[in-house]
Design a protein around this nucleic acid. Sequence first.
DNA 1: TTGAAAGCGCTAACAA
DNA 2: TTGTTAGCGCTTTCAA
Lengths: 335, 335
Amino acid sequence: MPRRSSGRVTLQDIAERVGVSKVTVSRCLREPQRVSETVRLRIEEAIDVLDYIPNRQAGALSSGRSLSVALLVPSISNSVFSEVQRGVDEGLREAGYQVLMGHTGYSILEEERLIDTFLAYGVDGFVLSSTRHTDYAQRLLNRARLPVVETMELTDNPLDINVGLDQRVAGRAIGEALITAGYRRIGFCGARLDYRVQQRLAGWEDALKAAGLSTQRCQTTPRPSSYRLGGELLSAMLERWPDMDAVFCCNDDLAAGALFECQRRRLEVPGQLALAGFNGLDITDATWPTLTTVITPRRAIGEQAARLIVERLQGAPHAPSRHDMGFEIALRQST
Amino acid sequence: MPRRSSGRVTLQDIAERVGVSKVTVSRCLREPQRVSETVRLRIEEAIDVLDYIPNRQAGALSSGRSLSVALLVPSISNSVFSEVQRGVDEGLREAGYQVLMGHTGYSILEEERLIDTFLAYGVDGFVLSSTRHTDYAQRLLNRARLPVVETMELTDNPLDINVGLDQRVAGRAIGEALITAGYRRIGFCGARLDYRVQQRLAGWEDALKAAGLSTQRCQTTPRPSSYRLGGELLSAMLERWPDMDAVFCCNDDLAAGALFECQRRRLEVPGQLALAGFNGLDITDATWPTLTTVITPRRAIGEQAARLIVERLQGAPHAPSRHDMGFEIALRQST
DNA sequence: TTGAAAGCGCTAACAA
DNA sequence: TTGTTAGCGCTTTCAA
């Protein structure tokens, strides 16, 4: 006895209605030009009438390709990654791939879990938003022999493709920009302290040390960043180092929060304190004063990641590569 | 001749290594207690050694259940939805479901496309973030007989389950709050003008009309909202209605942008102009002055949606239901 | 241009 | 407790 079928319309239903075999219908969907015009038109009509939706699971199982790519980001609510996501999504969709998104909550263990999950779903490739992974995750990825793009930061040992920017150089650049602007008692405030933030901090130290300035004014916390936290960190810093004349905040959320705190304290920005952020989110260009920041090419990173992964999916050979997408310092009213 | 196999480790590989049949391995994964302890331990060891990852496509094809649910949101970058997403994700993950996310860009046509795509992926249910859909999308959903939750706003004719809040009543409530606070020449500024914004606008009108106040001070645009747009709209309004004493912005982004514009113009908030937003995003509690807003229970909406969909997936009967999750007016410094 | 047969990796139903 | 058999819906291969 046949198992109860799902009730869904299948290729077979279309085939029967049209009076051809199901291979012909399948072919008509994938390579229409290989089917005679008359048959094609009748098949298309039947598909329309019956509201046929192909079963991708069956297709993927049979062909070994799922036409989907996993995109893992640390956080959904952090708008930094939504730009990357847009770039990836657009590029992959054009090429006929569906993007499946997961968020790791900045945890490499959760990333590992998601890699496992998406491998089980049969994705054809991965876009990751870090270069740091668990050993097991790396083993899974290597074994799967799928194209993998690591984004956001650069690494000397990419798993496969690496698209990002040098976070340390960018941190140094904003430090130097503050120094050039005449500031001398420059602080750093950082939250979350993931790898990228640590790199920015190192860059800030590079700049200050090269100029013979003190790097003591450094306030960090593992807590996730938020506007309010920006205010809290700034308050703590003002208390410890009342002489501070500028602060580089590790991201724009903290910088905006610090700015709001300055407004609350009626502290003039940049008159009494200069502020700089990192990423170039929309808000940096909307506040008053507008915020100096490092504009990171997040959209371009996503687009490039998509482009490269599509190349690989279309047969380009595996050859580790590294793509430095650069960054731009935006000097605004806050410095 | 057998087709080239994928090279991946399969149930069969585990079975051979252990010396049992593959059903036993499959069973061991799904109902471990139905397999003898000795066999179970050896299977678990083999899975570990071989780094076996189940093929979910095959499993789904065979069982008719994919253990995944699609969540469609209008926008990824809009943090309003990231809270909903968190709630949904958490609830569904606990129950063993994977959430697949898509974003519609506020287009019901794109929503239709995504529903089609995710049906092709065999998802077991949908969480949508609106109550408005194309006819075809509704037909697809009805035919699929899957649990569907429509979130965010309420409707009298839910497709299935509806979890949200009455956007119009909320708009009216904030209007009334402004009136109670003594404001009389109250404006409305809105962007995007999706259904929810239209409802909030209608609520604002309700409040003003009930109090015998003019509803002429209404500035809207179909453009997507952003901080900068909030500033632009406010500028336009101040020009047209210089006597305005308060503005209800249809969302917090516009409200924050309007606040920044006031700061730029050295217009005192709330002294010369009061501002109110909608949603209760983090920023409303961080700016100076803090922003009066309507706090929407987005996280709770997501959690409730997850709970209800899981119930249905576990066999609860289809019975259209509507869940009003309410809202809360937060009176802050800006009014 | 079309079709028959085999099989992707898994699970459900039934039998032992 | 374990295994046999059949089939989920599709694509690939090969033949006509």
